[in-house]
C-alpha cells in the first residue's frame, strides 16, 4: 500500500508570527518554522499502519525552501521517502490553490491512503483535506480520533459536538486525524541518521503540469485587505487569596461588571 502524508511547514507558534507588510501573506521566510505539530499525528498514523502491514510512507509538502525541514522531520520519524513541491510561483497560494497542487502530486504518487492533519497550525482552516478529496474524487473520512485500517476498509471514530460517530470508507481514500488519535513518536538517533539517506524528490509546478497562473498570490481567490495587530490587553487587577478574601473580591468584580 502507498501511504502519503501531507505535512505543512509552518511558523513556530511559540515564536513571533507575523505577516509580510508588502502583500499581507504569512511570513514564512523570516521566522523560525517547523513541521506543523498537528501533522505529526498524521505521520504517526501512517507509520502505525505501515508497521501493522505492508506499506510505504511518503511525506509530501508544498512550501518554500525551509519547508524541506518538514519533510526531514517526517523521514526522521520513520517515513520512507519525501516529496517537496517548491516553486516561486506558489507563494501566496490560498487553500484552493494548495489543494490543487497537493492533488496533482498525490495523483502522480498514486497514493492509496492519503493522511492529513486536522488543520495547519498557522492558517488552521481545516479545509484542505476535503478539497483534495473533492478534486481526486476519493472518499474522505475526516477528523478521526481513533483510526483502524482493516484490509481495504478505513474506520474512524469522530467525536463531534453532538455525537460520537463511527465513519468508514474504502481505499483509496483521504483520511484526516485529530490530535486525539495517537501520541506522535520522537525521532530516535537511529531515525535521524537513517533520514539522511532517504530519497527526497523536488518537484516544480511544471513537473505537475500546473501553470503558474493557476496558483500563487495573483490568482488567489481570496484577498486580505487589512491586517491589524490586536491591541494588548490592559493590565488587570490581581489579588492574592492569602487572607481568604479572594473569593469575595472576585464576586464583587463579577457583580460590578454585571455578570450576576
Amino acid at each position: 500500500m502507498k501511504i502519503v502524508v501531507c505535512a505543512k511547514f509552518v511558523p513556530d507558534a511559540t515564536a513571533d508570527r507575523r505577516f509580510r507588510p508588502e502583500d499581507n501573506t504569512v511570513d514564512r521566510a523570516g521566522v523560525d518554522g517547523l513541521l506543523s505539530e498537528l501533522d505529526e499525528y498524521a505521520v504517526e498514523t501512517a507509520l502505525t499502519v505501515k508497521e501493522a502491514g505492508d506499506a510505504e510512507v511518503t511525506v509530501l509538502t508544498v512550501g518554500p525552501e525551509q519547508a524541506a525541514d518538514a519533510v526531514k522531520k517526517g523521514l526522521q520519524m520513520g517515513a520512507d521517502a519525501g516529496v517537496h513541491v517548491i516553486d516561486d510561483a506558489i507563494h501566496g497560494s490560498d487553500a484552493v490553490a494548495t489543494s490543487l497542487i497537493l492533488s496533482k502530486a498525490l495523483a502522480k504518487l498514486e497514493a492509496d491512503l492519503v493522511v492529513f492533519g486536522m488543520g495547519s497550525t498557522d492558517g488552521s482552516m481545516g479545509v484542505v483535506p476535503a478539497m483534495v478529496s473533492e478534486r481526486l474524487g476519493l472518499p474522505a473520512v475526516t477528523l478521526g480520533s481513533e483510526v483502524t485500517v482493516d484490509g481495504q476498509t478505513v474506520r474512524i471514530r469522530r467525536d463531534g459536538d453532538t455525537a460520537s460517530d463511527t465513519i468508514e470508507g474504502t481505499l483509496p481514500l483521504v483520511l484526516s486525524v485529530s490530535d486525539q488519535a495517537n501520541e506522535p513518536r520522537y525521532p530516535s538517533f537511529k531515525g535521524i541518521m537513517a533520514a539522511k539517506k532517504k530519497p527526497v524528490q523536488t518537484w516544480s509546478l511544471a513537473d505537475l503540469e500546473i501553470s503558474p497562473d493557476q496558483v500563487g498570490g495573483s490568482s488567489a481567490w481570496t484577498e486580505v485587505v487589512e491586517v491589524t495587530a490586536r491591541p494588548p490587553r490592559s493590565a488587570g487587577t490581581i489579588v492574592a487569596d492569602e487572607d481568604g478574601s479572594g473569593a469575595a473580591q472576585l464576586v464583587e468584580f463579577l457583580s460590578t461588571n454585571k455578570f450576576l
Binding site: 490587553r233 488587570g236 487587577t237 490581581i238 489579588v239 492574592a240 487569596d241 479572594g246
Partner: peptide, 14 residues
C-alpha cells in the same frame, strides 16, 4: 497577562 481580574490562590478554596 490576559486577565481583567485574577486571584492568586487555590481553586479548591476560591
Amino acid at each position: 497577562e490576559l486577565v481583567d481580574f485574577g486571584v492568586v490562590g487555590d481553586l479548591h478554596k476560591v
